[in-house]
């Protein structure tokens, strides 16, 4: 996979290049700000652009750069990295795109396998959400009085958490050691219990519906 990086921290940037190369990827370009990455990607397309959220230009230049990359090269995957896992950034990420995009904590991709898996999923068109953030959203929603999330079984809550990470049915089945048919059944039950609209069979619409629901619940308890 051909990858370009924009990250203003020199140490992290160099470490990421080494890790990507160890994972067998080609680093096509490595930049300290978003403008330089845009200039490079305009002439030399890459499969995935990895961007630090908090870098120049501006206070959250990674997000504005991601918008420009998506407008310029809609087929390029985008992985946004941050020191913070915030639902506000997640909302911004999902506004940029609902396919071939990811948002992860910097230290959580610090392994050849996990970095490779993240890039493969983005390249395959999936949304990849930081698991720690997905877990916080599910837990926070379930802890509120009278929340329909509290009516989910333990297994359904696990499935919901993995859906919120952007996992596809087969990946959820593999993670929980259950069949894909059982996953479909749990997802149908979750959608019914939470009263979620939309087609549960279309992957990215399903992830968006779940995330929108969880964010609304978490922030002001008015979701659903």
């Amino acid at each position: 996979m051909r990858v370009a990086i924009a990250e203003d921290g020199a140490l992290f940037r160099e470490g990421l290049v080494l890790l990507l190369e160890a994972a067998g990827h080609e680093v096509a370009g490595c930049f300290a700000d978003g403008d330089a990455l845009i200039a490079a990607v305009a002439t030399d397309p890459v499969d995935v652009a990895i961007l630090d959220i908090r870098m120049p230009p501006g206070p959250d230049g990674g997000l504005t750069t991601a918008e420009r990359v998506r407008a310029l090269r809609p087929d390029t995957g985008i992985l946004l990295l941050s020191h913070y896992a915030e639902t506000h950034y997640l909302t911004r990420v999902l506004e940029i795109g609902a396919e071939r995009i990811g948002y992860r904590l910097k230290e959580r991709i610090a392994g050849v396998r996990v970095l490779g898996d993240t890039l493969d999923r983005i390249s395959a068109g999936e949304i990849v959400i930081e698991p720690a953030l997905a877990q916080r959203l599910v837990r926070g929603g379930a802890s509120q009085d009278g929340s329909p999330l509290a009516s989910l079984s333990e297994r359904e809550t696990d499935v919901l958490r993995l859906m919120a990470e952007g996992r596809a049915n087969n990946a959820i089945a593999g993670e929980l050691f259950i069949s894909a048919k059982a996953v479909e059944k749990h997802i149908a039950a979750i959608f019914t219990k939470l009263g979620l609209p939309g087609d549960a069979t279309v992957h990215h619409r399903r992830v968006l519906a779940v995330l929108a629901y969880l964010q609304a619940r978490r922030i002001d308890g008015s979701g659903g």
Binding site: G9, L11, F12, E14, G15, L16, L18, L19, A22, A23, R54, H83, K106, E107, A110, G111, V112, L115
Partner: peptide, 22 residues
Amino acid sequence: LHDGAAAETSALALELGMISSA
């Protein structure tokens, strides 16, 4: 804190991941 200790510790996590792969 973000650009100093946190950034350097994140870079350390990457280095550990690199060493682990080898």
